[in-house]
Amino acid sequence: MNIFRLAGDLTHLISILVLLLKIYATKSCSGISLKTQELYALVFLARYLDLFTDFVSVYNTVMKLVFIGSSLAIVWCMRMHRIVKRSYNRELDTFRHYFLVAGSFVLALVVHEKFTLQEIFWAFSIYLEAVAILPQLVLLQRSGNVDNLTGQYVFFLGAYRAFYILNWIYRYFTEQRFGRWISWISGLVQTALYADFFYYYFMSWKNNAKLQLPA
C-alpha cells in the first residue's frame, strides 16, 4: 500500500459518502444518473469475484464489501425508495448504457491477460469503469445547474482514479514491476473523460459561481 493508492481509495470512499449524504439529506436523487450507478454496481460485482476466494487483507475485503454494498444500496434506493425515486430525472437519464456494457464485455473477451472467467470479468470491470461516468456527465449537461453535493460527488469520483495513476507510476519505480497496462490505459481514458468536468468545476470554484456545464 502506498500513499497514492490510500488517497485514491479514501477519495473513492468520500465520493460514495457524499452521494449517500445527498440522497439521504435531501431525500432526492435529482441530477444523479441511475444508469451510472447501475454500471458501477456491475463494475464492483464483476471485479470482486475473488472476494471469497482470495484473501488479500482485512482492509481489502472490507473496502470491497463497502463498494459493492453501497452501490447496490444506491441503485435500490433510486429504483424502489418511495420518496427518492420520485425525484429521479428519468426523462433526462437516457444514455443507452447497455452499449457500454456490451462493448466492454466484447473488448474483455478480446483483450485480457489470461482467458479465465475471473480475468475476463476483471478486464470487463476495468473497461466498464472507464466509461461508467458517461451517463452521469450527459445528465449533468442536460440538467443545467448542478447542486453542490452532486458536483462534489463527480469531482471525487474522477479524482480517485487520478490518484491510482500516480500509484501505478510509484509502483513502477519502486517495485520494478510493470503495472497492468489494461489498468493503465483504461485509467487514463477514465480520468481524461473527466477533463472538461474538472475544468468547469475549477472555474465555478474560482469564480465562486454555480457549476454549469455547457449543453
Partner: peptide
C-alpha cells in the same frame, strides 16, 4: 521477467 503485480488493488 517482470510480472504484473497481484490483484491487491481495489
Amino acid at each position: 521477467p517482470k510480472r504484473a503485480y497481484p490483484k491487491d488493488e481495489l
